[in-house]
C-alpha cells in the first residue's frame, strides 16, 4: 500500500501481527489436534462411520486436559516392533539416558503387563484394555489442566508406514509431578492417554456413548458441483417453481431450508429452526441446492420468501 489509508490503519488492530504466524504446529495442543483429526477416516467414510467417529474429537469434547487420541488408522510399521529375535512383541517400553521413555504397542490385550513395564521405567501409568463398543465409566478422576510442557508427545502415525493397529509415543519421565497418573485406555477402536490427578477410579466398562450427530451444515454439501446429484444445473436466483420440477424429474426428493438474510442483505443470514415448516411458495427464491453427504436422494433448497439483489449466502459455496 503506497498511501497511508484505512487498510494501513487496520494493521495494528490485528491480534496476531500481520505477517506473523499464530500457533506453532509443534506445540502439544497442535499435535494432539492433528492426532485426533487424522484418527478419523479421511472423507468420514460412510462405510465405516462407527470407526470414523469413536474416540476421535469426541474424546476431546469432554473438555479435557491433554488428551491424545488415535484410532485404528494410525499405524506403526512392523519393523519397528520386532524385537531382536525377529518376533513381534505385544508392546515394547524402553528408556534412554535422558529419562525419555519410548512406548510401542501393537497388541492391546495385556494391559496389566504394559502397566507394570511402564511403572518399572518411571511412568506412573494405569492402562486398561477397552473392547470395541465399550468405554470406561467416567469420570474416573479429575484431569490435570496444567500438563507440563514436553511431558509427552501424543501418539502419532508414522508417515509412509503400514501395518497393524499399533502406535508409539514418547514420554519424558522427569516431568511427572507427584499425585498424577497417566491414564490410558487402549483398544481396537482407539486410544486415549490422559493425565489425571490421583486418586483414579478403576475402569468400569460400560457401553460406549453413541456418536453425537454433527451439525447439519457439515452433513450437506453443494449439490450442483461436479459429481454431485445436480451437477451442472444452476439454481441461484431461480424460483422454487422453476427448480422443483427439474429436481423431481431426476427422482430426487426436495426439502427446504428457509433463511432470513441479515437486514440490508450485506451477506450472511440466519435460520430460525422454529420457522422451517412454513409452506414454501412457488415464487420463493432459491439460492443454493444442497445434498446430504451420506444418504443420496434428497436435495435441500436454500430459499428466501422474496427476491434479493444478490445471494444472501455471499460468495458461492464450495
Amino acid at each position: 500500500m503506497k498511501n497511508i489509508d484505512g487498510i494501513e490503519a487496520m494493521r495494528p488492530l490485528a491480534r496476531v501481527e500481520p505477517g506473523k504466524p499464530g500457533g506453532r504446529p509443534s506445540g502439544a495442543g497442535a499435535r494432539t489436534l492433528l492426532a485426533s483429526i487424522t484418527a478419523e477416516e479421511p472423507g468420514a467414510a460412510a462405510a465405516e462411520p462407527h470407526r470414523a467417529r469413536r474416540y476421535g474429537p469426541r474424546r476431546l469434547a469432554l473438555g479435557l486436559a491433554a488428551v491424545a487420541v488415535l484410532a485404528t488408522g494410525v499405524v506403526v510399521g512392523p519393523s519397528l516392533l520386532k524385537d531382536g529375535r525377529g518376533t513381534d512383541p505385544a508392546y515394547a517400553v524402553t528408556k534412554d539416558a535422558n529419562g525419555i521413555v519410548y512406548v510401542k504397542v501393537r497388541d492391546f490385550h495385556d494391559a496389566a503387563g504394559l502397566t507394570r513395564q511402564l511403572k518399572d521405567l518411571g511412568v506412573p501409568a494405569v492402562v486398561d484394555y477397552v473392547p470395541e463398543g465399550q468405554q470406561c465409566r467416567e469420570p474416573r478422576a479429575t484431569y490435570v489442566t496444567d500438563v507440563p510442557r514436553g511431558l509427552y508427545y501424543a501418539p502419532t502415525n508414522i508417515p509412509g508406514e503400514e501395518g497393524g493397529p499399533g502406535w508409539q509415543m514418547q514420554i519424558d519421565t522427569r516431568r511427572f509431578k507427584d499425585g498424577q497418573t497417566f491414564v490410558w485406555t487402549i483398544g481396537e477402536s482407539g486410544t486415549s492417554t490422559i493425565l489425571m490427578n490421583d486418586p483414579v477410579a478403576p475402569c468400569v466398562l460400560v457401553p460406549a456413548d453413541p456418536p453425537k450427530p454433527r451439525p447439519d451444515f457439515l452433513d450437506y454439501r453443494v449439490a450442483t458441483t461436479e459429481g454431485h446429484s445436480l451437477a451442472g444445473y444452476r439454481v441461484e436466483g431461480k424460483t422454487v417453481g422453476e427448480v422443483v420440477p427439474e429436481i423431481e424429474k431426476r427422482g430426487l426428493k426436495v426439502t427446504y431450508m428457509i433463511i432470513e438474510p441479515y437486514p440490508g442483505n450485506p451477506g450472511g443470514y440466519s435460520m430460525d429452526p422454529a420457522r422451517q415448516d412454513i409452506p414454501v411458495g412457488k415464487d420463493w427464491v432459491v439460492w443454493e441446492a444442497r445434498e446430504p453427504r451420506r444418504s443420496p436422494g434428497e436435495v435441500r433448497l436454500v430459499v428466501t420468501d422474496k427476491r434479493y439483489d444478490r445471494s444472501p449466502l455471499g460468495s458461492p459455496e464450495d
Binding site: G23, R24, I37, P57, A61, L64, A66, Y143
Partner: peptide, 26 residues
Amino acid sequence: LAAHRRGEVRRQARSAELDAELADLY
C-alpha cells in the same frame, strides 16, 4: 467462523493445551 457465529459449531475439540497455546496469542 460464520457458522460458529450462528452457533452451529459444537464445542468439539477441546484440549487444555490447545486452548493454552491459542490463549498465548491473546
